[in-house]
């Protein structure tokens, strides 16, 4: 009886140990991505097999883009507050609302232009094949037909 119980326990321990070893070995790369300073860029490097030199170029472009992106965010937020204030009490179209909507469209267009310029620069910093793959992916991700709508993908 004792020997049988020992074998049963040993089997369970061996199964649990096998599970843990495989799990930790197979998630090592994902965990190392998460531990980095900029995990999203670490993911980009891994996903598009970038060399250190190519990754450095992408990293520099990214760092240069972020302040522009933040400025754009602030501008959009400020404009949205203004638009909401105009819309809150409105019951008819007014020239101010028309102007605010036109400004929204201008901001969106400016934002898309800025992003697209950045995506082209990043794709050119990558090896040609990876650059094409990156562009194809990022354009689909950002310039979807239902842009701005809740994404169920």
């Amino acid at each position: 009886m004792k020997k049988g119980v020992l074998i049963l326990v040993f089997g369970l321990v061996a199964g649990a140990a096998a599970y843990a070893c495989i799990y930790f070995a197979c998630t090592a790369s994902a965990r190392s991505l998460q531990r980095t300073d900029k995990p999203e860029l670490a993911w980009l490097k891994e996903e598009f097999n970038l060399s250190d030199a190519a990754f450095q170029r992408v990293f520099d472009l990214h760092a240069a883009y972020l302040p522009q992106c933040r400025d754009m965010c602030r501008e959009i937020d400020a404009h949205n507050v203004k638009l909401q204030a105009l819309l809150s009490g409105a019951t008819n179209m007014t020239p101010e609302i028309t102007g605010a909507l036109a400004e929204s469209a201008r901001l969106r267009s400016g934002c898309q232009t800025m992003m697209l310029r950045h995506f082209f620069q990043v794709s050119q910093a990558m090896p040609p094949e990876q650059g094409r793959r990156y562009l194809s992916w990022v354009k689909e991700k950002v310039f979807l037909p239902d842009y701005g709508m809740p994404n169920e993908k």
Binding site: L33, P39, L41, L44, M115, K141
Partner: peptide, 11 residues
């Protein structure tokens, strides 16, 4: 991380 990359870039 993929979604995060897009969110960081798209205002």
């Amino acid at each position: 991380l993929r979604e995060r990359y897009v969110r960081v870039l798209d205002p």
